[in-house]
């Protein structure tokens, strides 16, 4: 059973990558499509209320999180669901990662490597696509079969890239919003699929509202943004230990 730490840290990583900056110039090559899709999900600040429904081994747990993020290196998560987790949270401040739970009564420093662990613990592995999908890590090509609408790309990791998958198939819908990522292992089997099932149309951009990750093992994670505020200035004091300890 994967830990709730890993699950929630997964949300943090995904969120840091879902921050949007709006539209980009019309791409032509596969690399440009990928780069444009990545750029379209990046921004400066992000506030959200997130519901996370995690099904592991047939058991489902619902987490409720308040989330603030600035850039890729500062984030604060406060947990309000389930009841026993209420008041606990995580703080990412540059190279430092902290965890706090009222029962412990003091913040615990986690090794930054735990952030990486969250990626695979949660099933929300969009980091591979959104943070690590630069042309430095992959060979990017158009899929042989293209959908009627949007673009399908195939990403094959370079031999020494820190990518565990054999290849990824990415479906971008018109407007370059990420619609679906299919992760294949190195023997061609599907490991998991991350699908955006619901979008939130904001005045200047489109962001995912619900992301469903289905793993080959049958485990499932559904992440829903209940509330989203993008690019509103955030108080730097939010990303401090004092803020993490505040209830």
């Amino acid at each position: 059973m994967r830990s709730s730490h890993a699950t929630i840290l997964g949300v943090l990583v995904v969120t840091l990558n879902l921050i949007s900056t709006g539209a980009s110039a019309a791409p032509t090559s596969a690399e440009e499509f990928l780069e444009a899709a990545r750029a379209a999900w990046r921004g400066e600040t992000f506030q959200a209320t997130v519901t996370l429904e995690v099904t592991r081994g047939g058991e489902t747990t619902v987490y409720g999180l308040e989330l603030w993020a600035q850039g890729e290196t500062r984030a604060l998560i406060r947990i309000f669901l389930p009841k026993e987790e209420t008041g606990s949270g995580y703080l990412l401040a540059d190279d430092e990662l902290w965890y706090y739970a009222p029962a412990i009564g003091r913040p615990l420093a986690l090794p930054p490597i735990a952030l990486g662990e969250g990626l695979f613990g949660s099933g929300l592995d969009l980091d591979d696509v959104l943070r690590g999908t630069s042309a430095d890590s992959y060979e990017v090509a158009f899929a042989p079969e293209q959908p009627l609408e949007g673009v399908r790309l195939v990403l094959t990791p370079l031999p020494t890239a820190a990518i565990v998958y054999g290849h990824l198939e990415i479906l971008l819908r018109p407007g370059l919003a990420l619609q679906e990522v299919v992760y294949h292992d190195q023997r061609g089997r599907v490991v998991k699929t991350a699908r955006v099932t619901e979008f939130l149309e904001l005045p200047d951009r489109v962001v995912p509202r619900t992301i469903v990750v289905e793993e080959a093992s049958g485990d499932r994670t559904v992440q829903t943004f209940e509330r989203l505020v993008i690019d509103d200035p955030l108080d730097p004091a939010l990303f401090t230990l004092e803020s993490l300890l505040r209830r």
């Binding site: 190279d95 090794p111 930054p112 952030l115 020494t160 890239a161 820190a162 565990v164 190195q186 023997r187």
Partner: peptide, 23 residues
């Protein structure tokens, strides 16, 4: 579920940050 010839990723705490690479 890894076989010979397949790539795995190693993550370690480097001098200043977490480092990773595929082997």
């Amino acid at each position: 579920d890894v076989k010979v010839g397949e790539r795995v990723v190693v993550l370690v705490q480097g001098a200043t940050s977490t480092e990773s690479r595929g082997v």
